[in-house]
Design a protein around this nucleic acid. Sequence first.
DNA 1: ATGGGTCCT
DNA 2: AGGACCC
Length: 625
Amino acid sequence: MIRNPSLRDLPLGIQQKYIIVTSNYVARQHGVTKLMSVSDAKEKCPQLVLVNGEDLTCYREMSYKVTDLLMSHCPLVERLGFDENFVDVTELVESRLKETPLSALSFVGHIYNQETSAVSAKDYPRLAIGSHIAAELRDAVHTKLGLTGCAGIASNKLLAKLVSGAFKPNQQTTLLPECTVTLMHSLSGLRRVPGVGPRTAQRLQALGLHSVSDLQLFPLVDLVKEFGEAHAKRIQNLARGIDVSMVTPTGPPQSLSDEDSFKKMSTMAEVSQKIEELLASLIDRMHKDGRQPMTFRLTIRRLSTANKWFNRESRQCPIPSFLSQKIALGSSDVLTHLVTVAVKLFHKLVDTSEAFHLTLINVCFCNLQSRSVSRGSIASFFSHKPPQKPQSSSRHTGPPSPRQPISPTPTQSHGRRGGSDYSVEERTGASRSPKTSGLEEGAFPRLPPDVDPDVFKVLPQHIQEELLSNFQTERSGIPSVLTTDLEDQTGFSHIFPEPLKRASQSVRSEERGAVCREYDAGSSREDGNEFSVPQDPVGMRVEHDNSSKSVTSNSVSGADFPHNVDPCVFSQLPADMQRELLSEWRQQKPIFKMPSRPSGTGGASRDKKTKGPQTNNLLKYFKPS
DNA sequence: ATGGGTCCT
DNA sequence: AGGACCC
């Protein structure tokens, strides 16, 4: 729709192969649904206009533009697919809170299950501020990129995401902590809980669990028997509305892939041709990215009578370094060489002396390394301060673009290996200082002043809840996450880098143009971004350093609580109290996981998970031509 | 399903 | 290399 506004008021469907992956609201009014076959859709809506959405380029570009724009307002942005972003606005909220009188606070948009006019913003100062930030972000995305979408404002990612869909086209909703229970109970089944996929839902069903409350109340011990401790705790917490995961800045993609599916392919000639076609566009994308892929992977799907359902098989291999350099440099004869590599992998997958029938081929570059400048040594990495959050520098600075061997290209910060010295540091930001770890106060810092935390801890649950609920009405909530989403449209190009987010699949994207969400009805999609607000700054972010100690209490996987906290009680606590508890608890955990496996090149590089600090600008991505 | 992605085992 | 999850 963005590309062709004349489609805006017509029923529009985005087609990939023989299915409508998404559609605008006009088409939805005519009964077109999300993964409907083209034939069923045409039957329901003969006038349906179809746009092919198999090429995700436009959506990807727009998607990064959105992420980039959000990052320019607040650096902590985590992408989820092409059309959703989580933004941790805790720090922004805290700084605005310091400069605004309580009397000047208000809410913007909807409040889940309550009348906005009936809620006092003074009682939830952080969430109220979060609602304004979400509105500003949605407005920026709309005015600068032409996309509309929804946002959810809550104390964690799970909740922000779930509440963002409460009011559908192009609206935003804030979740007050006391409505968490209602929101979770409103879900029609366990599959609606993000993080519970088809497999987990099936296993839960086998245990006799169907609803969110079934999972909330199921004995953890028994759940652990089925799923293991970490997974069991995680999903049960999710059912209770608890999500301790951080908003992890996404940074540039970890892999780039290109694939095509078809009815059937049975000859080597067709296979090499398809591989060549896919590789040509992948190499082009890789070149624009500017990083060097160290690994290549080929994936296929066989036509299988039985098991049609996900049988994908893959083989991967290191990319000879002369080739990966050429890719980054944009050399023209790379294609042939890579086709050779791919065909060799293909033969490891398929015995071509026998008949074969493929249904899909995927080519992927992963283990992407930024060639930063100096290839310096690992020593230079250690000499810098710790990986701070680099942030940005590059972000706005133009496309880092590709190229140029020497330049200090920013690209990622983080791990950066190498680099001259400068780059790295920019840090900035905010200082999130480390606050030392430790103890600062007790575990329950925000109890009413007349309650001793040590006494509180040993009280029966119902008494604790009563104390807290009385106290809670006086405190504000803390927001935490927001998500925003946007819709569609696309356009492209741009300024710097990258793009946006939304469009989830191709589908969405194509729609683009039009619509957006004007008003209701229908549909398109929207989705959103979620902003979470609140958290304490300190809490979520852990970054820094080192570790302090290792774990104190249980540590275990991410899902547990400090030893004296019962999850059931915890879930009833006011959001800001939860946040502080989690913060403290997280500070005791080691921050970096270190290479569990010997990594390759410099260990310094990082470990993937360490992404935290890297903010990078992602976006740089395709250059502005 | 489609055409992408993520992280964990 | 595969599995699970997300869109």
